[in-house]
């Protein structure tokens, strides 16, 4: 197997711009990702931080084969995901910001389905699901319909769903959104354990700067679909320190210095233009 888990080269994606059938009206295309390139090393947790609407989820969707890039290439362990879609999908799984389950089915029924379509057998699924949910303090809720679980508990089941299939490339798209602080720490600890014990490579998108600094080996800052900076948390902090002690330079400061606005302000700009 090729040694680079994820290689993204000159990736671009725009939405809109299609000619409308009846009215022949052109819409102005909106660029979501602009000429983005990066690669992730094996066993690394690579963070992509940015405001809501900065293009993080579009990027994850393209890597997940759910969106087709306009330009550029994505390779997963050397497999071009457009030419080897099924093979690449087998190596990937994803946690999305919304838990996304069949709400009237139980957690176990959901996990059985979502793992069976990755080729796992029911006995293996039940064993691993009990193990993962046990570590996330949810083993006793496994037979309850998803709609009886809180938002945070549903998100933990979503984390379990993703790790159940033992992906070698995990895409965590804001995995701790909606979790209470204790659950957030629990999930973050679980992510670290999985990386250490199972040779997983992880792409993590977040707008939580503390989470990015705590979990990620390297971080890319995404603004308006562009990667404006990339490096280890230490490198990024050093870059903007300007003589200040590094302890006084948080990732929040890094974002502020490099983009000229806080992440909340950037979200405002993305929302209202």
């Amino acid at each position: 197997m090729h040694s680079i888990p994820l290689e993204v080269t000159n990736l671009s994606k725009s939405f809109g711009g299609a000619r409308q059938f009846l009215w022949r009206r052109e819409k102005e295309p909106v660029a979501a990702i602009r000429n983005v390139s990066f690669q992730i090393e094996r066993g690394e947790i690579y963070g992509v931080i940015g405001a809501n609407g900065s293009g993080k989820s579009t990027l994850v969707r393209m890597i997940s084969t759910l969106l087709t890039p306009d330009e550029g290439q994505i390779s997963v362990f050397g497999l071009d995901i457009r030419r080897h879609e099924l093979e690449a999908r087998r190596l990937i799984n994803r946690v999305s910001p919304d838990p996304s389950f069949f709400k009237n089915m139980s957690a176990l029924e959901n996990l059985l389905f979502f793992a069976r379509i990755y080729g796992m057998g029911p006995a293996e699924i039940k064993r691993k699901a009990a193990e993962i949910l046990g570590r996330l303090d949810l083993a006793d809720r496994i037979r309850e319909p998803m709609l009886n679980l809180s938002r945070g508990q549903q998100q933990k089941v979503a984390v379990a769903r993703a790790f159940l299939t033992s992906p070698v490339l995990m895409l965590l798209d804001e995995p701790t959104t909606g979790l209470d602080p204790a659950s957030k720490l629990q999930v973050q600890q679980f992510v670290r354990e999985v990386r250490e014990q199972h040779d997983a490579t992880i792409l993590l998108t977040t707008h939580d700067m503390d989470e990015a600094e705590r979990l990620c080996d390297r971080i890319a800052i995404l603004v308006g679909g562009n990667v404006i900076a990339e490096g280890t948390p230490l490198e990024l902090r050093t870059r903007v320190a300007n003589g200040r002690p590094l302890e006084q330079v948080s990732m929040e400061t890094v974002f502020l210095e490099l983009t000229g606005k806080s992440i909340e302000e950037d979200e405002e700009v993305m929302a209202h233009g």
Binding site: L66, L86, Y118, R161
Partner: peptide, 14 residues
């Protein structure tokens, strides 16, 4: 409607 479409369609199932 359930919100599961992306998780189903990204699975390695022809």
């Amino acid at each position: 409607w359930e919100g599961t479409i992306e998780h189903t369609l990204m699975a390695p199932v022809p």
